[in-house]
Design a protein around this nucleic acid. Sequence first.
DNA 1: GCCAACGTTGGC
DNA 2: GCCAACGTTGGC
Length: 151
Amino acid sequence: MKYWLMKSEPSEVSIDHLASRSGQTVDWFGVRNYAARNFLREMKTGDLAFFYHSSCPEPGIAGVVTVVREAYPDPTQFDPNDAHFDPKSPKEAPRWSTVDVKLMKKVNLVPLAVLRTRSDLADMLILQKGNRLSVTPVSPDHWRILQSMLT
DNA sequence: GCCAACGTTGGC
DNA sequence: GCCAACGTTGGC
């Protein structure tokens, strides 16, 4: 089993949106970056991920989710009315994938500013300068450390 | 709103 | 294949 960190803008899908959905499940639509997409395709049912709020007043880890459906074509790439429409994505070989994730637990936000104070987390991908990947792997060590910080 | 960093596009 | 231009991300 692997560990991940997945960014979402709370104005699009927040941890509370997820909690209020039927089955507390949502599909991770809209990833349009090849490196992030490749990580989505590596995910297996049962993998765990931190749900991270980005591009908002207080970015940070807001919850834990688990993968309940492995990668399948992201339907929004074929919808001309969707902001994530990709006219160049071939129907027979869809460019973009999504997975379904289910809420495990909501936690008290662990702010990015706190993550940055931790020398034992300094090499997390999310904390590297210029990192913009919306889906990143998390090492078992980092996962364990972060678990102990969640309340 | 600013801006650094990065990814993608497209001309050559 | 190079690289300039452009668009996007995302923290601050």
